[in-house]
Amino acid sequence: MINVLKSDFYKLFLRKAFYICGVISGLIGVLLVVLINNEFPFAKELGYNGISSSYIGLGQVTLLTTVFLSMFVSSEFAYGTIKNMCSKGISRVSIYLSKVVMGAFTSIVYTLFTGLCGFIAGSLMWGVGEFNIDEFWNILRLFALFILAELCLQSVFIMISFLIRHTGGTVSANLAVYVLAPALLLPLLDYIIKSLKWFELEGGVSKYWVGSYMQIFSGTLQLEQEVICTGIIVCLIYFIVSTAIGIISFYKRDIR
């Protein structure tokens, strides 16, 4: 497993797309501050509070992480290099889990980099303001929860990449899931469930969609304990189920 990780990190750092997506995620952080500055002129008065509000846009970075990871994972199949690993007797579980670690690493790096760029841009525009320890812990919690939700969502995308094994198809499918799920699929499922007289789902389907918690976690610094707990449980279930499906599928299917 350690060797597969070493090799995967080596490949990751040699990919130009990793740095390009990183730069874009940093730019997103800066652009969000500029946007907030234009939309909410009072942000300047808030100082540190104002800066923290720029993290509301963290979800935008997920799109970049999704595209990059879809390419990174599926390219192993497209280039055929997955054969170089599997034919050496390396466990397929290790190969899969290594990609999950790559997903987590990429999510953390992009999210923190976006946050850092937003912080620097906000500090330059609005000043740091008064340091508030509660606010600081809230921001840390926001990042931790957001990253947890993000890497659980990415584990779903990694599973899809291992199922489809085709770069174009994987990128399209993952983007479709990310963009269309909240816009079309969840309302449709809600509608279907509502039409079932004998079944009721408390809080609607979106309460059980991992992407919803990314928005909730990055949407405000004031979160209820119950929401946090439900969110963590939903995210972990997505992570465990998608990873299990991905590993079983990768283990069972032939590499053609």
């Binding site: 040699l14 130009k16 280039y79 054969k83 034919s87 050496k88 007797g89």
Partner: peptide
Amino acid sequence: IGTVIEYPCLYPY
């Protein structure tokens, strides 16, 4: 074992 199966499997970048 070392293998080359079907086509050269390389990282083009």
